[in-house]
Amino acid sequence: MARKAIVDRRKCAYCGACVAVCPADANELVETFLEIYDDRCTGCGICVKMCPMGALAMVEVE
């Protein structure tokens, strides 16, 4: 089990705030949507604290 960030695309404002603080470069604002690369996400939760919208959450994954 590991913690990973997930994005609720219906809440996301595509602002890139989470990209600016991700220490693992796991988040990317691709053209106009947010992509989270699971293989890079370390589950630190920093992006969840940063998100102005509350669009990010940490989940347990296999």
Binding site: G16, V19, A20, V21, P23, E28, K49, M50, C51, P52
Partner: peptide, 26 residues
């Protein structure tokens, strides 16, 4: 390329912002 600069980070010019170095805005 903005606060989320890919260029700055990949080139090693800037460090990723910590949660006391950035404002979250709406």
């Amino acid at each position: 390329d903005g606060v989320e600069s890919k260029i700055g980070r990949k080139a090693g010019i800037i460090k990723t912002l910590k949660l006391n170095e950035v404002e979250s805005c709406a």
